[in-house]
Amino acid sequence: MTAVTLDALDLSALLCSRICHDVISPVGAIVNGLEVLEDESDASMREFALDLIRKSARQASARLQFTRIAFGAAGSAGASIDLADAEKVSRGMFGDEKTQLTWSAPQALYPKNKVKLLLNLVVIATSAIPRGGVIDVQVTGDGEAPTLVLRAKGSHARIPPHVESLIAGAPEHGVDAHGILAYYAGLVARAAAMDVRFSIDGDTVTIRSEPSAAAAEEAPIVGVPLDLGPPDTALA
């Protein structure tokens, strides 16, 4: 496989495009609900609009909170993130009538890049069961040498197309806004000195990540700063 390197501008542009795509839907629904409130006098329609605004606002907030940790410099400029926060934003993002999330992990601070990797693998696990199902997340070991195991079980489960080559940093067909999350997950995995492997058995896809045998220490992502400034405590 031939490695593909994106410069910082292309990487940031593709990530921003994907994040905006995920947030546009609930924000658009809020706008639609407000338009109904402006134009409608019928009580039932106004209540419908208010309900739509409430649900969409919660959804937009959940997506932004997840994105802030998974892709941004959330929490602080420090080196650790609480796994409890990772669980909270994951449940807010994916816990619904379509997908159930079970979570087993220590209540502890783990290295930032390892937690970011975990969250990005949750996104990939969700795409492995397009019709919904159950995602079981298990984290064992200490923060310096954790084992991350995610099992996505559901109808028509499959290893997402091209995800393995994207994570390996050698995509067969380049990197676009659809594949950028898996490519970014690979960058974070290498920065955290973690390997990622996929397997499938029937209706269950297993994603397993363990410390890389080839690297004993975390390495920085060259040209792609993951800590983008001082703590954003105003958003915490």
Rank of each mutant, 00 (worst) to 15 (best):
T2V: 04
A3C: 05
V4F: 04
D7A: 04
A8D: 14
S12G: 01
S12E: 11
C16Y: 07
R18Q: 15
I19G: 03
I19Q: 13
C20A: 12
V23K: 00
G28K: 06
A29T: 03
I30G: 03
N32F: 13
V36Y: 04
D39Q: 13
D39T: 09
S41T: 08
S41L: 05
A43E: 13
A43V: 10
M45H: 14
F48M: 14
L50S: 08
L52K: 03
L52A: 11
A60M: 07
R63V: 01
R63T: 10
Q65K: 09
T67E: 13
F71R: 04
G72D: 15
A74K: 00
G78V: 00
A79I: 05
A84T: 11
R91V: 05
M93A: 12
G95W: 01
E97K: 10
K98V: 07
T99L: 15
T99K: 10
Q100D: 12
S104Y: 02
A105G: 00
Q107S: 12
P111K: 04
K112R: 15
N113Q: 12
V123N: 07
V123S: 11
A125P: 03
S127Y: 12
S127C: 00
P130H: 02
G132R: 06
V139G: 07
G141P: 03
P146H: 07
T147D: 11
L150D: 05
L150A: 00
K153W: 00
S155P: 00
R158A: 13
I159N: 08
P160T: 04
P160I: 03
H162S: 06
V163H: 06
A170I: 01
P171T: 00
V175I: 06
H178F: 08
Y184Q: 05
V188W: 08
A191I: 00
A192R: 02
F198Q: 02
I200Q: 15
D203W: 03
V205W: 12
V205G: 09
T206Y: 06
R208A: 11
P211Y: 11
A215W: 11
A216I: 00
E217Y: 14
E218I: 01
E218H: 10
A219K: 15
A219R: 15
L226E: 15
L228A: 10
L228D: 10
G229E: 13
P230T: 00
T233K: 11
L235M: 08
